[in-house]
Design a protein around this nucleic acid. Structure first.
Lengths: 228, 228
DNA sequence: TGAGCGGAAATTGTATACGATCTGCTGCAA
DNA sequence: TTGCAGCAGATCGTATACAATTTCCGCTCA
């Protein structure tokens, strides 16, 4: 009996680990995810890795080019705008629904969540802080009890992470945690109007912290074109 | 040389054909999609079929149960509501954007589209008519030039097809095409307010034509429980 | 020196093989 | 007759093998 029969990890676990790494910016947009390399790292066959990569492609986190391989998606400026456009359609009204339905337990969970965010920030673990910050938005969708919308928001938050990696203005300053606190207060108070408005403002503020101007002409754009 | 080297169809084409069949209600929700059977039909290996089924699973059209196989998804009543909830978040404001951006060519395409819908109805081809009716909504999203939102709407329209197969009240009456005509008029006139309002009303009307009451108690519920 | 052109190495795409799990039948015992 | 154990068939999950494509390096020749 040379090797273990059962694989060390399932395809889903591979997706989780890769996704987490991208969310925490340990893997940059544009990075190549070679099948051989990944399968070596996780100790599984390429079959599972391919499944995982295909799965992530559907979430928009990975782009697969035929006969060339899988890469962490590099959203264009247009796609970046679209992501926040879509979020602004879904999240404010989802926050409203959450405010109407949040239980005492939900509030406690969110408080705990925010505490973890702060802890990560204090530890200067910006990657983790960013990931948790995204999870906060998903958590609100879950409270709203809209699984379908929740899945969409999860995708959008995921892609937002890529957008932030590429277009964030101040590399050190992370999404102001005040916004999350304010949202939590609105949820606690059951103030639906306030929650909707805060979420709308929060998303707008996030978008404003991105540098989404088209890179103008000049030598830079040429190099970009060559580097693809 | 016994068989052709290249596969007759790619994974994506398999997805297309299966998806179309489900959209046209030629395959019912709950139907099993056996890997062997599908691979025989299309003349490809199970590898590609598995890829295709996994892909459809992400779109929500197929549900895969471990070691049991793939089935056309049977949305629950809750999921059915969620689908229309999500559509009501996305589509009205997308219709507004479409009204603001529609070109003369876009309008012409939509007119052609609606003509096809009518033709299918006249031919009593309800399956095709239903599919085209869904495509109309996707076409509007495309005009709005929001690819991200368009993808979500495509998924939702797709799931709506399953919901309709399961919960539609009048099996013969198809979605009133008047609504699509009215929408087209609003787009042609560039009346954004009107387009948004019409889409909202259209979705509400669709939802109302569904029978989403919980099956009450009694012997029926017992049998339902046993039948799944 | 630099452009053009093999050709080998690396990487992905597809098919097949084998093992694990589930399903349903058959037979035996209570 | 009923219930359960066990075996056979079917189906899915994973790994491996092979084919197709791309990439990259070095060579030649202008």
């Amino acid at each position: 009996m040379p090797t273990t029969k059962a694989p060390l990890l399932s395809a889903h676990e591979i997706v989780s680990q890769l996704t987490e790494a991208v969310h925490e910016h340990r893997i940059q947009p544009g990075a190549k995810l070679s099948e051989d390399e990944v399968s070596d790292i996780f100790g599984v066959s390429r079959t599972l890795v391919r499944q995982a990569l295909r799965s992530m492609e559907h979430g928009g986190l990975v782009t697969i080019e035929r006969n060339r391989g899988a890469f962490v998606t590099k959203p264009t400026i247009t796609e970046a705008r679209e992501v926040f456009e879509a979020r602004s359609l879904l999240e404010p009204r989802t926050a409203r629904a959450a405010a109407e339905r949040a239980t005492r337990q939900d509030i406690a969970d969110l408080e705990c969540h925010i505490a973890n965010e702060h802890a990560a920030l204090d530890r200067k673990d910006l990657g983790l802080a960013l990931k948790l910050s995204g999870d906060f938005h998903v958590a609100i969708a879950r409270i709203a009890e809209q699984r379908t919308v929740e899945d969409f928001i999860r995708q959008l938050v995921s892609r937002s992470s890529l957008v932030i990696a590429l277009y964030w203005r101040h590399r050190d300053a992370v999404c102001e945690e005040d916004a999350h606190h304010a949202l939590l207060d609105a949820l606690r108070a059951g103030d639906a109007d306030q929650a909707e408005e805060l979420m709308k403002a929060h998303l707008r503020s996030l978008l404003l912290q991105l540098d989404l101007r088209e890179r103008p002409e000049g030598p830079v754009s040429l190099r970009d074109a060559l580097l693809r």
